[in-house]
Simulated assay, not measured.
Amino acid sequence: MRISRTARVALGCLTAAGLAIVYVPLLLVLLNSVNTDRSFGWPPSGLTGRWWRAALHSEGARQALLTSLKAGFAATAIALVLGTLAAYAVHRHRFFGRRTVSFLLVLPIALPGIVSGIALNAAFRTVLDPIGIGFGLFTVVVGHATFCVVIVFNNIGARLRRIAPSLAEASADLGARPWQTFRYVTFPAMRSALFAGGLLAFALSFDEIVVTTFTAGPGTRTLPIWIYENLARPHQAPVVNVVAALLILASVVPVYIAQRLSSDTAGGRL
């Protein structure tokens, strides 16, 4: 489709404005992490690396980071298992209620975080409290897994739709058992989608704050919660910017890899 020069200029301006809205605040966070002024004055009065040294020696930030890593890896592991099995069942088998199951699996990611948080909080109080399991890392992992499963399910489902069923049929005709077909044919073809889904699920879990607020115990602080609690403290604000800057930098690589793997059309090769 051919568009006029005016339309191209207008679309370019709108695109630039949209990107500026997203990325200018991120650049400001990076700049404030080396700003000598505690109050984030503009323009910066100078550049310094002392806030980065302070962040590295912050015990609270290190503990929060460790908690976030534990929750993220555990939730991702659960999501990889359940999401892969669910996607394989929905997209490789025909059974009554298949579309309903698919809808119910995707629904958690569409619900507002505060609704999911309240629902999980009530469910944990009703089910876990009577058996002596309180709020803590376990409840955070379960809460995160509810929406991480959706990411893996969607990634694996999209890849399975692109894998020709004739490949599995040919494998069976050659005498391979179902497990052998999955191991040597299906799994290699969807391996990159599995890896991409795991990366995105971990990133989503690592950044989650709303559901975490409702499912974490008093002594359980993930990194987003630590940032939120310390942002209003004048002496911690520069350190918070450093932690936020590290999260921005650390998110670029996995998101880029996941995007490359998800857009791969060569059967799972990077």
Rank of each mutant, 00 (worst) to 15 (best):
Q180Y: 08
V29E: 05
F206D: 08
T146F: 09
A87Q: 02
G268K: 06
R233G: 09
P130W: 15
R260W: 01
R5E: 09
A16N: 09
T15G: 08
R159M: 15
N230Q: 10
L111W: 04
L128E: 12
R62H: 00
V140L: 12
T100R: 00
L199K: 07
W42S: 07
L204H: 15
V239Y: 02
I131C: 14
L82R: 01
F103R: 06
A216D: 01
I133R: 15
A216S: 11
Q180E: 15
S39V: 13
I163G: 07
D129N: 15
P25Q: 13
L107C: 03
T220D: 08
Y184E: 12
E208L: 10
M190L: 06
V253L: 13
V149M: 12
T181E: 14
F73C: 08
G267E: 06
C148P: 04
Y23M: 13
S263P: 02
N32I: 07
S39D: 12
E229T: 06
A250L: 12
T100Q: 02
Q180L: 12
G134N: 14
A10N: 11
F40H: 09
M1I: 02
F147I: 10
V243N: 03
G83P: 01
A237V: 04
A170Y: 03
L105V: 13
T67W: 00
R50Q: 14
C148S: 15
A17R: 00
E208Y: 08
L160S: 09
V239E: 04
A110H: 00
L28D: 07
G157I: 07
I21W: 09
P234I: 06
P178A: 03
L31R: 13
L128K: 13
F147Y: 12
G49E: 09
S45Y: 07
